[in-house]
Design a protein around this nucleic acid. Structure first.
Lengths: 178, 178
DNA sequence: GATTGACATGTCAGCACCTACATGTCACCT
DNA sequence: AGGTGACATGTAGGTGCTGACATGTCAATC
């Protein structure tokens, strides 16, 4: 269901776009929030067309199909944003590793934490670079006066920072026990 | 793949357990880290038995099958913990809502944020209660001197706190624009 | 003796998702 | 003319996961 929403959202932001454009959009703008490859996107667009949420506005060169959102699609998007409780299933590989860490010897556990730290730092750096890039060039504002994706990016950065801090504290805690 | 790991981990912590026990284990101890229902667990245990990672040690009353981990299973678990890079796909409904929030009117956006805040606070309270409960009764320690699941729970609590803070700041930011 | 509810295991249909396969267009460079 | 590489859309097979269906045991209560 959320893939539909992400597509409708991007389509609203873009005005109109092809499946290819949307795939690219997933690779850059929404990547840290939701992921999908073209093999998932194309069939979904077909289904959404059948459901009347989007329409093929025109067909361009190279078989390019240009989609745009319908009023039904806008309604669906709005309803989800306003009414959907975020109850996505909890599945975090990092948290699972953290959970099982006591199974390892002291030394090994420290190594794993060190690796998690590096990972988290890399992700944080990525997101901060994205932030900097976004704020270098102007980006359209939405109806609520906030720039597109800024809130999500801020959340991602905070979460990454929290994870880095956690690895630091966890490492310190383990070392105290040595 | 990670389901296997979670099952092997729980089995190690428990010593031995039935599919039913493990299902219960998923409901309480690992729930905030990884989710799985019995309809996923039973077939997976069968496959793992075929792969030699676990064995049916005994059969108890009511058709109860008691599983225990094999040395192969222990090796697999260890290899994953030590060698696996946490590259789980980024899919967060909260982040997606945050991303698309500018599509809404100012008032509506605030309502959504308020709801997200309530949600995050509820989750935080849950995890903190879990923490308190765990620390009231003794829990076995692992090889590294850390209690089972404590690190993951700490991470979860921090993440929840971060989310709550983010909602607060986002609300404040939106209100400043009114 | 019958019902209820926790214990206990399984299957199946269907959706979500991923990797790899498959096909073709067009612009640009050599 | 041929090759490369971005553009562009699709399909197919396989796994992960969910919700619903299906079945049966055992203990306790009424």
């Amino acid at each position: 269901m959320s893939l539909r929403i992400a597509l409708l959202g991007l389509l609203t932001a873009y005005g109109s776009a092809s499946g290819y454009d949307l795939t690219k959009g997933f690779e850059k703008s929404v990547a840290h929030v939701w992921q999908a490859g073209h093999s998932q996107i194309y069939p979904e667009l077909a289904k959404m067309t059948a459901d009347g949420l989007v329409t093929v506005e025109a067909e361009g060169a190279r078989g390019r199909k240009i989609y745009s959102i319908t009023s039904e699609g806008r309604a669906e998007l709005r309803a989800w944003l306003i009414g959907h409780d975020p109850t996505g299933p909890a599945r975090s590989e990092v948290a699972l590793q953290a959970f099982l860490l006591p199974l390892l010897e002291h030394r090994e556990a420290l190594d794993v934490l060190e690796r998690l730290k590096t990972h988290a730092e890399r992700k944080l750096a990525e997101l901060e670079a994205l932030w900097a890039a976004k704020h270098a060039s102007p980006v359209p504002e939405g109806a609520s006066g906030v720039r597109f994706g800024d809130l999500a990016l801020d959340l991602g950065i905070r979460q990454s920072r929290t994870t880095v801090q956690w690895t630091n504290d966890a490492i310190a805690q383990l070392e105290r026990q040595a």
